[in-house]
Amino acid sequence: MRPVVGNGRRVLVRCHSGYNRSGLVVAQALVHLGYSVEDAIFLVRFRRSKWALNNSLFVDYLTTGLDVARLLTGLEA
């Protein structure tokens, strides 16, 4: 995965409430850019809301790694 932000471009990420799905995408992009998972989660919650990433399964995806999570859940690439 090569996020567009890695190329110095701005990206808008949006979902219905903006707490979990978009938080997961943004946090994963931050991890890809070199932030630790903990720092990425903190930044998403600090900038969006303390309720962001309140889905513990999404936090598990981040801490486990999306590649491993894909294998464990049988998701297609």
Rank of each mutant, 00 (worst) to 15 (best):
F58S: 01
L72W: 04
T63K: 15
N55R: 01
R14K: 05
A77K: 13
T63N: 04
L43I: 10
E76H: 09
S22L: 06
V5L: 06
V31F: 02
S22F: 02
G18W: 00
P3H: 00
G8H: 02
P3Q: 02
G18M: 00
N7K: 02
Y35A: 12
D67A: 10
T73M: 13
V37D: 03
D39Y: 04
T64V: 08
V31M: 01
S36M: 05
S17H: 13
G6H: 09
T73P: 00
G65S: 05
L12Q: 00
S36F: 04
N54L: 12
V25Y: 03
D39H: 06
V13W: 01
R70M: 13
L71G: 11
G8Y: 03
L33S: 15
D39L: 06
G65C: 05
L33M: 15
H32K: 09
V59G: 07
N54E: 12
M1T: 07
A27I: 01
R45E: 05
R9H: 07
R70H: 05
H16S: 11
R48Y: 04
L12Y: 09
V26K: 00
R47P: 00
R70G: 06
D67W: 12
G6A: 08
S22R: 01
W51H: 12
F46Y: 15
L43R: 10
L66Y: 14
I41V: 15
Q28H: 07
Q28I: 02
A29Y: 06
T64Q: 14
N55H: 11
R9F: 13
L24V: 08
Y61K: 10
L72K: 15
T63Q: 15
V68D: 14
L24H: 01
P3W: 01
H16R: 13
L72T: 06
V11Q: 01
V68A: 15
Y35T: 06
Y19T: 10
L62G: 12
H32S: 14
V4T: 08
T64E: 11
N7E: 15
Y61A: 11
Y35H: 14
V11T: 05
G34R: 04
G18Q: 03
N20L: 09
R48S: 07
Y19S: 11
T73F: 05
C15S: 13
S22Q: 05
R47N: 12
G65Q: 11
M1C: 03
Q28D: 15
G74I: 02
L30P: 07
V59F: 03
L62N: 03
V31W: 02
D39G: 02
L12K: 04
R2W: 05
G74C: 06
V68W: 07
S49M: 07
L72Q: 09
F42N: 02
L43Q: 13
E76A: 13
V26N: 00
D60R: 11
R2S: 09
W51I: 10
V44H: 06
V13C: 03
V11E: 04
S49N: 12
R2V: 12
D60H: 12
C15N: 02
A77D: 13
N54F: 13
R48C: 04
L24G: 07
E76P: 06
V68M: 10
A40S: 11
N55Q: 04
L62R: 01
D67C: 05
L75E: 14
R14A: 13
A29P: 00
V5E: 04
F42D: 11
G8C: 08
G65M: 01
V13R: 00
N55C: 14
Y35V: 07
A40H: 04
V11R: 01
Y61F: 15
L72F: 12
